[in-house]
Nucleic acid binder design. Structure first.
Lengths: 164, 164
DNA sequence: ACAAACAATATGATTTTTCATATAGTTTCG
DNA sequence: CGAAACTATATGAAAAATCATATTGTTTGT
């Protein structure tokens, strides 16, 4: 059937052999995330941003004036890294930092006009890309994926709250 | 059809405000992957491994004697990084490298007994962890998640073959 | 058989990331 | 009030990742 004779012809794609890995949930999640993001992240880089920077912009589009710590969680980056990234973005004039008058430890981050403009360009691109992806998935899969991921996230966040 | 007068429900934990990000597929994938992996990756580190190292072991458990490039794809790491990681793992005696007699450019990687022992310890832990996760998901969600991710991956890999 | 084109891995140099901890501001409570 | 205990952000030093390219081996076309 799929016999390929002596020279074991190169397998396609990841060269996925059946086995533990290719059915392992954590692998599927990481691989799907990686692969799905790859294309869009290319556009992000062409816009002169690194991935976490784009994430920061997207988060600020949702909640301008967020704190560093919040941004770190939402952008899936560590706090010390986020601090530096914010610093660089500030230098580039994409955002500004202002300490919260109500609590001096907090630093709130706001988009500048330049930052807002860039965001206004990228978010629609992201949405378009997402729509294209969703369209490629067979009907029910497309419909199930996001809710399933949200459930998973909900379960995991609930766990965090108890365990630590 | 898929239109859902976006009434986005508030989410806990991340302090997720409804908005673009929390319903964005690429975010959901990355966040779910991150959160789901976090717990197990803690165990991995306690076993003295970094995440990509664990991934290499898992891949080798499936296909001992894989090439560096294959391992890089499967372990979701870049080739030059993988090369160095393999080097370190070899130094630690977890695996050995042998150049392929049929094609001298290729380097095939094999588990040592020590590597195999460690793998034999971790893979079952991973499976147990996965099972626990799956059990926490509501019936149909648990059943849908993996197939949905596999479809997504299949679609994305098909695309790569044309475009990239 | 040979030169170009290609493929797999390695490596130097630079940039990022991480880890631990410093610094600064705030709350708790005796 | 004032001393812990805490919380938010920053930062130095070390580890790791990335990029471009070198090196080595193989295939192809003439």
């Amino acid at each position: 059937m799929t016999q390929q004779t002596t020279k074991a012809k190169r397998v396609e794609g990841t060269g996925q052999a059946p086995g533990f890995v290719s059915d392992y949930l954590l692998y599927l999640l990481a691989a799907a995330s990686d692969a799905a993001s790859a294309q869009f992240h290319t556009k992000v880089r062409k816009a002169g941003l690194r991935v976490p920077e784009w994430r920061v912009l997207a988060c600020l589009a949702d909640t301008d004036g967020a704190m560093i710590t919040q941004l770190a969680r939402r952008a899936l980056a560590e706090q010390s890294r986020l601090t530096r990234i914010i610093g660089q973005m500030e230098d580039r004039g994409l955002l500004i930092r202002r300490s919260d008058p109500a609590d001096g430890r907090r630093v709130r981050v706001y988009l500048t006009d330049a930052g807002r403009a860039l965001t206004a360009e990228l978010v629609p691109q992201a949405q378009k890309h997402e729509a294209a992806l969703m369209e490629m998935l067979q009907g029910n899969v497309g419909a199930q994926l996001k809710p399933a991921l949200k459930s998973l996230l909900a379960v995991l966040e609930a766990q965090e709250d108890w365990q630590g």
